[in-house]
């Protein structure tokens, strides 16, 4: 069983995320990290591989060259191989253009199963999988909190606004997992050391046969017109617990006449 996991490098959680007013794109100059939600997808792939006894887990990403650092985290967790589509021409791609590139990269891999994470922590889109599934002409199940494989098909349980759905689809299929599906493992020291020597391939748009004009800013169908500040929030107070936090909360609630 071959599983491809789509993962993204996002600004590190400690970074203050901002949109560069000049380029109108997310400022990616700071530290990057593997999107935490994608670690759940990698974990699920590793579990499925272990359960089926054989197979391969390949992580697939589109991003700048430095994103390889984040892909290595997935390799350290246990993924077998990484593929990064890295091309100046792809910078500024919107959902439409990104899905085009990823679908091409996935076409080349021909996996039995494509996994996505719950959302990118920088875009909060939680949408990309459906566009990719459409291009691959594969069934898609999103928000999956429980996934079981059963021969040539899989079954996913997921939450909706009304309760729970159980959906079955034949392989090959596309599944986006929820962050509740598992607890991602921490890479072991051995895993971290071993990651460096695992195959890491970088591909250009030309390698994939993608027209440069169909991706990047030119191939995108959405644009950022302007940025503004949201209305100011009221005062926020932040305290560090030095043992007296409970008392300080009581004082705060008293001051607000909430108790």
């Amino acid at each position: 069983m071959k599983i491809a996991v789509c993962v993204k490098e996002v600004p590190d959680a400690t970074a203050h995320k901002r949109i560069d007013p000049g380029t109108k794109r997310l400022d990616r100059s700071g530290e990057g990290a593997l999107n935490a939600f994608d670690a759940n997808a990698v974990e699920e792939a590793l579990r499925l591989k272990a359960a089926t006894g054989d197979g391969e887990v390949v992580v697939v990403s589109m991003g700048p060259e430095r994103a390889l650092n984040s892909l290595r985290k997935a390799l350290a967790m246990g993924a077998d191989r990484a593929v990064l589509v890295c091309d100046e021409g792809a910078a500024g791609s919107d959902l439409l253009a990104t899905s085009r590139v990823l679908a091409k990269a996935l076409d080349r891999e021909q996996p039995d199963l494509v996994l996505f994470g719950q959302q990118s922590s920088d875009s909060d889109g939680a949408v990309l999988w459906a566009a990719v599934a459409e291009r691959l002409r594969r069934p898609v199940i999103s928000q999956v909190a429980e996934l079981t494989l059963d021969g040539g098909s899989l079954t996913g349980k997921r939450q909706t606004e009304f309760g729970y759905d159980v959906i079955r689809a034949p392989l090959p299929a596309v599944v986006a997992v929820a962050d509740s599906i598992n607890e991602p493992r921490y890479p072991s020291l051995k895993g971290i050391m071993g990651a460096k020597s695992k195959p890491q391939e970088t591909l250009s748009l030309a390698d994939l046969g993608v027209e440069a004009s169909s991706v990047g800013a030119e191939g995108s169908r959405t644009e950022v017109l302007g940025l503004s500040d949201p209305p100011p929030r009221g005062d926020t107070r932040k305290i560090e617990d030095d043992g007296s936090a409970a008392d300080q909360i009581v004082a705060f609630l008293t001051e607000k006449r909430l108790i």
Partner: peptide
């Protein structure tokens, strides 16, 4: 926005070569 609508919107974007804005 709904679980269902998000997936329709995204798949439709790919089908129609259309731009999708969210949130």
């Amino acid at each position: 926005q709904s679980i269902l609508a998000a997936d329709i919107a995204s798949g439709l974007a790919a089908r129609l070569d259309a731009g999708l804005n969210w949130q």
